Simulated scan of single mutants.
Amino acid sequence: MPAQRADARRNHARLLAIAEAEVAAHGAEASLEQIARRAGLGSATVRRHFPGRRALLEAVFRERIEALCLRAGELTDAADARSALLTWLGAVIAHAASARGMAAALTPDAVAAQESECAAKLTEAGEPLVRRAVRDGAVASGVTAADLLTLITGIALATEHHADRAAEADRLLRLTMAGISPPGSAIDRASSPAGAHR
Rank of each mutant, 00 (worst) to 15 (best):
M1A: 13
A3K: 10
A3R: 13
A3P: 03
Q4E: 10
Q4K: 07
R5T: 10
A6L: 14
A6F: 05
A8W: 01
A8Q: 05
H12W: 06
H12L: 12
L15C: 12
L16Q: 00
A17Q: 10
E20S: 11
A21H: 04
A21W: 03
A21G: 10
V23T: 09
A28L: 06
A28V: 04
A28T: 02
A30G: 09
A30S: 13
L32W: 00
E33I: 05
Q34W: 00
I35P: 07
I35G: 09
A36G: 12
A36M: 10
R38W: 04
G40S: 11
L41C: 12
T45Y: 05
T45E: 09
R47V: 05
G52F: 01
R54G: 02
A55Q: 08
L56P: 00
L57S: 01
A59P: 04
A59V: 03
E63I: 00
E63A: 15
R71M: 11
T76D: 10
D77E: 13
A78E: 09
A79E: 14
A79I: 02
D80N: 14
S83N: 06
S83M: 11
A84D: 09
A84V: 03
L85Q: 06
L86T: 02
T87A: 15
L89G: 04
G90T: 05
I93W: 00
A94I: 00
S98M: 13
S98A: 15
A99S: 11
G101E: 02
T107V: 02
D109P: 02
D109W: 06
A110F: 07
A110I: 07
C118S: 15
L122N: 13
T123Q: 11
E124F: 09
A125H: 05
P128H: 09
V134I: 15
V134H: 09
R135K: 14
R135P: 01
G137N: 05
A140N: 08
A140F: 06
V143N: 02
A146Q: 08
L149Q: 05
T150F: 12
L151R: 00
T153Q: 07
G154D: 08
I155S: 05
A156Q: 05
A156G: 06
L157N: 06
A158D: 14
A158H: 06
T159W: 01
E160G: 08
A163Q: 14
A163C: 10
D164P: 08
R165D: 13
A169C: 10
D170W: 07
L172R: 14
L175W: 13
L175P: 00
T176W: 10
M177W: 05
A178G: 15
I180V: 15
I180N: 04
P182D: 09
P183A: 10
A186D: 14
D188Q: 07
R189V: 15
S191G: 14
S191N: 04
S191K: 03
S192W: 03
A194S: 10
G195H: 03
